[in-house]
Design a protein around this nucleic acid. Structure first.
Lengths: 153, 153
DNA sequence: CTCATGTCAGAGAGACTGAAATAT
DNA sequence: CATATTTCAGTCCCTCTGACATGA
C-alpha cells in the first residue's frame, strides 16, 4: 500500500496550479518578466504606491522574499522606493516611467489581449464555477487554522 | 478597473496550494528533506526502481529538473543509479540503505503519523469532497488542451 | 520596552535554456 | 537519418532562516 503525503485531491489541486502557472509564465516569458513581477506592476497601475508588506500580502510570500522581488524590479528600473514621509519606518514603492513602458508593452501584446488567453474555467458551467469558487473559499478559510495549530505546538 | 492576470478562482487555488505546501514542508523540515525528495523516496518503497523520466512525470516537472533533484538525492546518498541493462540509454534509480533509514526516520516521527497531520479537506462534507475532487479532475482534463493550443501557434 | 516593518546575508531548491552524448 | 532519454553548464527567481536596524 502506497503511503502518500497528502490526499489525492490536494495532489490534483497542485497539478492544476502548476500547469496553469507554467502556462501563464510561458505566455509572458518573451517579455522578460515573471508572474509575480507582473502582478506587482499591474497593481501599481491602480494605486499610487505600495508598501513592501503589502507586496508580501498580495504575492502571498513573506517579507524578506518580497524584498528580493522588489529589489529585482528596482534593478530593472521598473519601480523605485522612497521613505514614507508620514511614517519613516515605511517604504513606498512607485512605478517608474520605465515600468509603465514595460506594462504598455505587455498590455499591447497580441496574444495577451483579454479573450485571447486560455480560459482555465471554460470547462465549467456557471453553476460549477460558482461551486468551485465556493469550495476554494471554504478550503482557504479552513487552512487558516493551520497557523493556530502551529502555535499550539 | 484592475486588470488581473488570472480568474479569481485560480488565485484562490494558488493560495490554497501554497498554504498547504508550506505546511507540509514545515512538518518535514526538521528531517532535512524536501517534499519532492520525500515523494521520490516514498515511491521507491513500492517499486524496484525508477527511471528519471518517471521521476519527472510523478513530480510533474521537466527532465532536466528531475536530474537536478535526483542528483541532490544522490549527494545525500539516499539513492543510487545504474545503467538499465536492457536499454542502455535508461538509468535506473534505486533506494539505498541510507535512503531506507531516512524513510524509517520520517515514517516513525511522532507528528507525521497518519491522523496526526492537519486534514485540509476536513472542512468538507463527503459530498463536497467528492464534488471538489470531480471539479479538479475536470479542470486538469481541460488544462491538458493547453499543450495542444501551444502546438498550434 | 514592545511591536511591526524592512533589510541583509546566506543557503538551497527548483525551473529553464541550449547544448551535447547516447542509444533506439 | 530521426527520435527519445539523459545529462550538463549556466543562469535566474524564489524561498526560507536568522539576524539586525529602524521607528512608532
Amino acid at each position: 500500500m502506497t503511503k502518500s503525503i497528502q490526499p489525492a485531491s490536494m495532489s490534483k489541486l497542485g497539478k492544476a496550479f502548476l500547469t496553469w502557472r507554467r502556462y501563464l509564465q510561458k505566455q509572458i516569458q518573451e517579455h522578460q518578466i515573471t508572474l509575480k513581477q507582473l502582478s506587482v506592476l499591474r497593481r501599481l497601475e491602480n494605486v499610487p504606491f505600495l508598501h513592501p508588506f503589502e507586496v508580501a500580502e498580495m504575492l502571498f510570500c513573506d517579507r524578506p522574499t518580497a524584498t528580493v522581488i522588489i529589489n529585482n524590479m528596482r534593478r530593472y528600473g521598473w519601480v523605485e522606493t522612497r521613505k514614507d514621509p508620514g511614517n519613516r519606518k515605511y517604504q513606498q514603492i512607485f512605478l517608474t516611467e520605465s515600468g509603465m513602458e514595460k506594462l504598455d508593452e505587455i498590455n499591447q501584446a497580441e496574444h495577451l489581449q483579454s479573450g485571447k488567453l486560455f480560459d482555465p474555467l471554460a470547462c465549467f458551467s456557471n453553476e460549477e464555477q460558482a461551486e468551485f469558487d465556493r469550495l476554494l473559499m471554504k478550503l482557504n478559510q479552513h487552512l487558516l487554522s493551520i497557523d493556530k495549530e502551529d502555535q499550539d505546538e
